[in-house]
Design a protein around this nucleic acid. Structure first.
Lengths: 126, 126
DNA sequence: CTCCTGATTCGATGGATGTCAATCTAGATA
DNA sequence: TATCTAGATTGACATCCATCGAATCAGGAG
């Protein structure tokens, strides 16, 4: 699976929140690549099913049945998520298990953080 | 332009974090529509320029110059962001001003929140 | 009203993307 | 060895999308 080179490499600490300062062209390109992976209902559901599954990972066999799609299509979507650095897959015996990469989710979540949310967090943490 | 009321309207309470429970097909469709609007480098930069601009709003004339793109293309991207409910625009005299809608950004940020981030917040707030 | 300017809409086009059927690979089992 | 199964890959096709030029719209200034 992606045993070798992570395609996106989880990158350097990317990007203060959108609302604080404008993104550079390079930052936007990298982030857009990740958001593009989330810009599909099937992939969003796949990601949520994987991330929320017991043990933090899910077998492809657990995922396919939830959709009215063929195996190759599911495989394609998983590949898109994998190449965006959002999930990672590992083969164990007969089955392939996928897990979400929290750092990627956090990167995207953080860049969308709004100031009142940040203010709330600051208040709570004081 | 969407003349509507300024602040928030707080949208339907969409979606506990991806990592907590799987999204329904309907939730995924709605969220994917919003992520799709962010799935482009130009639109991400436009959004960040608008959201981080002084006064929380930016004139189209301030945005166009930053890109090597024609006016119609910028207008197209702003329309996509507007129709996704991420920004809102208002004409004042000669110019059109856009502002980000924080509730939309928060919805997306929240759905991507990871458990260790939540745990961190809890630890800090105790 | 006429012109000018900022911005949107329209129409066309090349490239990206989601989907499937067919094929292929990796591992298990015999 | 051969065979079976879970997934991935390939190739093809239809649709979607980013971009542009041209036309159009909305206000302001003569």
């Amino acid at each position: 699976m992606s045993k070798q080179l992570p395609v996106v490499a989880a990158g350097p600490p990317c990007c203060s929140p959108l609302v604080r300062e404008p993104l550079t062209a390079e930052q936007s390109t990298g982030l857009a690549r990740m958001f593009k992976a989330l810009a599909d209902p099937v992939r969003l559901r796949l990601l949520s099913m994987i991330a929320s599954h017991d043990g933090g990972e899910a077998c492809v066999c657990d995922l396919t049945d939830a959709f009215d799609l063929t195996g190759p299509t599911i495989s394609h979507h998983l590949k898109v998520l994998r190449e965006a650095g959002i999930i990672d897959g590992e083969r164990r015996g007969t089955w392939v298990y996928y897990r979400a990469l929290p750092s990627a989710l956090r990167t995207l979540s953080d860049v969308l953080t709004t100031p009142d949310r940040a203010a709330r967090a600051v208040r709570h943490s004081s």
